[in-house]
Amino acid sequence: MKGFGFQPATAVGVAFLLLQLALVVRARFVDERFFCWAPFDEATRFETQVVIGGRTLSREETNRRYRHGSAGWENHSVHNVLRMIRQYESTYGRSDQAQVTVTYSINGHPSRIWTRPPLP
């Protein structure tokens, strides 16, 4: 392709590397671990429960809702799961007024509970 030279493509490559560097630095200031090269740094056992209108969704319904497993092991960060849930419930699922509870244990430590919306 005419004009597809060395320098513009290389500049794009450098820009992409700088974007990744920014995401690695960003990871130091947030809890989630996306695009920061943190694979298998935590072994978190988690379980998600979603209640809409007084009815608890089944495991399959929860899996379909977030396109992510509703129970099992998460090896990046449990905050990746929490971010997905927060983002879904504040966008696509806003009208459902869902009550979401995630029970999780990081690296075998005592369990913690996260809820959305937060419990009073």
Partner: peptide
């Protein structure tokens, strides 16, 4: 890219 992968992994 490899340097970034392992720098990110090590830092985490």
């Amino acid at each position: 890219q490899f340097a970034l992968i392992y720098a990110g992994a090590a830092t985490n």
